[in-house]
Design a protein around this nucleic acid. Structure first.
Lengths: 133, 133
DNA sequence: ATATTTACCTATTGACTTAGTAGGTAATTA
DNA sequence: TAATTACCTACTAAGTCAATAGGTAAATAT
């Protein structure tokens, strides 16, 4: 399951893209428009900043802004920065020890194929695609 | 993420299919071959019994057996009986209240499309397909 | 200078889920 | 009657989720 972190992250990115006429957009405004707790969004936006997807500037007139055009972001990278991984099973997640049964497992190819399909799906959609919905 | 319940359920189903020459297969044997706690498998197999996917018989000589041929099971139904839902987001899971923002949400179509793709993927694979890996 | 506004930081929490374990009873067969 | 098996209820330790709380640092407006 995609958690609120990933889902809210996409909504934040869309919101920033839709208000790009302002140089910097305060998180307060995003939180109000999206009806999400600003405190919680801080956690999410930090992942986006650390991941190099958005930039933040403190102080009056500050806020966040996108670093690229909406069509230059893909949905997959936004989700991965906030969710950690898009992998469907622990056996294929990079931060777990390799499964001792991986060579004989009859189900592993299923998960591999599914993960590949998932990756292609989310990396094939751009932020611009979402905005046009 | 697909949890161990769904993953183990598939391995149990494959194991039962591979040993179908015995009428009933004791869970003890499945647990030993698959190297999974028998106690934990009991929980998983109960979901499969309640879901009408396998049948169990108590007593000596008892155990579990498939009710259909492997090609007549699809992976999706096995996962849904044990995981509860295959939906990627709470907003589209049937047992949650509909999201108040669903009409304006720019991301909902993404999750719908992804869930549809996921459904088609898992419902398009049979138990037999897994055995042939 | 000072007040205001904003990002950015660490820590905490209650509810829930996950991945089992424990200890039985009921059913069936040898 | 003994052995074997499914089936049942309850419990639990660890982890995750979805936030909240309470600050400090940075930048600008007055």
């Amino acid at each position: 399951m995609i958690s609120t972190k990933g889902r809210y992250a996409l909504r934040v990115m869309i919101d920033l893209a839709e208000h790009a006429e302002q140089e910097y957009i305060p998180l307060k405004d995003v939180a109000a428009r999206q009806d999400i707790s600003k405190k919680y969004l801080e956690i999410i936006v930090r992942d986006l900043v650390n991941g190099g997807l958005v930039a933040g500037v403190s102080g009056k007139g500050g806020g966040y802004k996108l670093l690229r055009e909406p069509e230059e972001y893909n949905v997959g990278e936004i989700l991965e920065k906030t969710e950690g991984t898009l992998s469907s099973v622990a056996c294929l997640s990079c931060d777990t020890a390799p499964c001792p049964r991986k060579d004989e497992c009859k189900t592993l190819p299923l998960w591999s194929e599914y993960d590949q399909m998932t990756h292609d799906f989310f990396y094939g959609k751009t932020l611009r695609d979402l905005m046009e919905n």
